[in-house]
Design a protein around this nucleic acid. Structure first.
Lengths: 246, 246
DNA sequence: TCAAAAGTGTTCACCGTACACCCATGG
DNA sequence: CCATGGGTGTACGGTGAACACTTTTGA
């Protein structure tokens, strides 16, 4: 092993350059906040937690955490989601990185927002209780802390866009679902009424659904056919970039 | 000026950190990398710099820098762009945040990528020379350091998508331009040939161009009319979300 | 007079959209 | 037998896509 001085001396050129770039740079706290969408067959919902510490104690907030060292952002988002909801293997997508100076009054924090789609029915209620968590319709969600309202707006807008590029929404529905449910989901996301017949024919043209020989008898006397999606064709569709205009 | 040994000694802590694998418990280095698109009436280009320090010395790289404390990401991106090109007041958009553990071998660094659109002709060549910078066609760009190739792919794909939602491209053209130039720009971005007549009628339907009483005589004997864009109508279009299918 | 780029309309196929009636069943 | 939600087809208009010839003028 060389003595320190010699080592430093031999590397002096690189060291100086690195000092100018890497070491002189400031490090910051990197947070990850998750917008968790769910669907209850009626409204599009988000899962919020009530903060039990200052500042903003008692206010509603997105679910968040900090990026750990040696952790990739996607993993951090997954970890946070799992921590609050018990869910894993969930559709998540990075949304945007927010960096306003005073967005977090406690300390300068940059936040990378993710959004996730989960099925409300599968959700273990123990978790929600543990964390003072609660589902809210996006139409009457409370005011959120920091810039979380802004994040939510971004997320909704991204989700709307996603409906046109991916057969999203299956993430939000149970394994078996009716056409009606699917339509209501899209209506909730886009917040507009859709025509029943047009909707069905467009969805069918995607060719990713399997009509089951089974009916859901809860919603009507006649009963409505249940569908499930064809996983193979679904994956295929994720690859080519189609456009779906609803 | 301190003697070298003293300088090295005083910085030994940082130096050792830099030389070893880095891990800071909570805070991380946040880089900003810029994909700078330009257009030279023929190809879509990107501006790259040749690194003059290790690691990856001599390789081509995107323009980057680190986020400063008390600086917003957008400002950092603008600062970096200005630093390398002398441009300010440029269209920039945040792209995505990259966080692979080993994306930067020197130290754990999270990078927020931005892309910018500038007009090659306005570009001050002094800057490019100072920084060993060079324009490359996106079709024959060299291999880039770290995950910059991946960033570039993302940027191109975002840019393509943008053509359908914003009247982009005026950022990339000179004040006055011909229909032909505009078409070539879109062709370069989408990397496909477009039909002259269809293109013109679609662009005209946007109603954001002003046809000038002036011809560009350089490209042909007959000369072609110059256009400029109607700033007011252009701003208007940015607000409502139109869709342009080319 | 000719080469080289500019400029200009029409037709067709497909898709998005609007729209209304019968069906099956449980109570 | 009737109320309730489920299921189905068609017609029209608009838009994207394909396509070719004339004009201008400098060399």
């Amino acid at each position: 092993m060389k003595p320190l001085w010699k080592f430093l001396y031999l590397h002096r050129k690189n060291l100086f350059k690195m000092l100018n770039t890497y070491s002189s740079a400031d490090k910051v706290l990197l947070a990850v906040d998750c917008i968790i969408f769910g669907f209850d067959n009626e409204d599009l919902k988000i899962l919020l937690v009530k903060r039990d510490f200052e500042p903003e104690k008692g206010k509603w907030s997105l679910m968040g955490g900090f990026l750990k060292k040696d952790e990739v952002l996607n993993d951090a988002a997954t970890r946070i989601l799992d921590h609050y909801t018990g869910f894993n293997d969930i559709y998540m997508e990075q949304l945007y990185t927010f960096s306003e100076i005073d967005r977090d009054p406690v300390e300068r924090t940059i936040s990378v927002a993710y959004y996730a789609l989960i099925n409300v029915k599968n959700h273990n209620e123990d978790f929600t209780e543990n964390f003072n968590a609660q589902w809210f319709s996006i139409t009457d969600a409370p005011k959120l802390i920091f810039d979380h309202d802004n994040m939510l707006r971004h997320a909704i807008s991204r989700l709307r866009y996603r409906t046109s590029t991916k057969p999203i929404g299956f993430e939000l529905l149970p394994e078996k679902f009716t056409m009606r449910q699917l339509q209501k989901l899209y209506e909730a996301i886009l917040s507009k009424k859709l025509d029943k017949r047009n909707f069905i024919s467009k969805i069918n043209s995607l060719d990713i659904l399997i009509k089951l020989n089974e009916k859901d008898m809860l919603s009507s006397r006649k009963g409505s056919y249940l569908y499930t999606f064809d996983k193979d064709k679904y994956e295929e569709k994720l690859l080519d970039n189609f456009v779906l205009n609803l």
